[in-house]
Design a protein around this nucleic acid. Sequence first.
DNA 1: GTGGTCTAGACCACA
DNA 2: GTGGTCTAGACCACG
Lengths: 124, 124, 124, 124
Amino acid sequence: MSTEFQTSKPIYSQIADRIVQQFVRGELLPGEKLPSVREMAIQSGVNPNTIQRTYGELERLGVVETKRGQGTFMTEKNEMIQKMRTDIQQEIIQAFIQNMRQIGLSDEEIHHSVHECLKGGGAS
Amino acid sequence: MSTEFQTSKPIYSQIADRIVQQFVRGELLPGEKLPSVREMAIQSGVNPNTIQRTYGELERLGVVETKRGQGTFMTEKNEMIQKMRTDIQQEIIQAFIQNMRQIGLSDEEIHHSVHECLKGGGAS
Amino acid sequence: MSTEFQTSKPIYSQIADRIVQQFVRGELLPGEKLPSVREMAIQSGVNPNTIQRTYGELERLGVVETKRGQGTFMTEKNEMIQKMRTDIQQEIIQAFIQNMRQIGLSDEEIHHSVHECLKGGGAS
Amino acid sequence: MSTEFQTSKPIYSQIADRIVQQFVRGELLPGEKLPSVREMAIQSGVNPNTIQRTYGELERLGVVETKRGQGTFMTEKNEMIQKMRTDIQQEIIQAFIQNMRQIGLSDEEIHHSVHECLKGGGAS
DNA sequence: GTGGTCTAGACCACA
DNA sequence: GTGGTCTAGACCACG
């Protein structure tokens, strides 16, 4: 699974984002063990140092916990999970609103469009 | 300006999408001349045939009009412009709702979140 | 069977026309598998890309359906079949009337001539 | 003007047909001088002998008249002109009916189709 | 110059 | 195997 990365953002950060997203979407469960640094490095096709930095960053944010000699695990703290969810949610909404404004829609129109789309079939 | 392309979608299609977006965002005006097939190929770092296909696809959709020996031009038909705008709008909304549902939000919550975000500062 | 093509019309389009005609005349049946792109290219004495374009065009028109890894098949939709029949019919009639007018016949005379010819032996 | 010829019919005969058609369509007038054998041979990209045979055939049919030392001229006999017109007309009608039958139309339907097409806009 | 078509040959995803 | 995409390079008709 050699993933591709953007040039604008550091790779270690992109991988961190990916892990958070997988967690929020339920593809990673609370307390679940993450692949080892070496294993994840191979999977992602990057240098182990990069993954090291990714895990460090995630631990600093309280998203994962590292247990010496055992590995890296997703947090089990419910508050953390909630926070991550709302964080991601905010990112999605802000990006959405930015997009809509960029094509010239007013806030009123954005609100109305969402309402219409949810009332109707919505996204499949 | 050697752009990078995704692997999942055909390049000619990605370039077509880019042109439509630029048009909807006002970076391209109705009736404006697009770069020649060869010029755009150089700019995008792809083969002229790929751009040819892009322009062909766009003409089939009524987004551009080609005049032999003169060049390729954005359409001036207002109905087409409106259609493109609503089409892109729908795409953005559907992607947004899909994202929100994927992280476990109900339609009610989605609606509420947008409302809150628009009431507050909104996107920067 | 190296067929000859006109210079005025694109080859890919001429081959498409040929397929539609064969279908309308019953030489190709609904749901029947067409030769593979490479096979048809050899039969027609053209490049595989040209056939690719032919098949693409026909699919866009709803005349054929392609199944990745399996092949290209004539449509089975009755409405499509009917449409093709009437389309071709219109083409033939229009060309006929154009020819007749070009040699100076009035609409009345055209009508009369057809009537006479059908009443008599007709075409062999 | 290097014309292309079919393989099924002799070239001299195809050129003869072309001349007759041009005459019937008014592109060649009664009594008009045809290009010399050598000139026509160059125009058509064939051997002068082929044109010689074409003119011979046309003279045998009474379509052209050859005057020694002056050249070859379209006939001025009205009866001949009329005959040619009806001959060509018959060819067109027969080919038309054959085409229509080939796609499965009955004589009744053919008649009806022509009627409809003439009643409506007809060929442009 | 412009767009349009065609060839030759390559690689990919799918089944 | 299948269809689909892409590149490289050629030729054409049009203005």
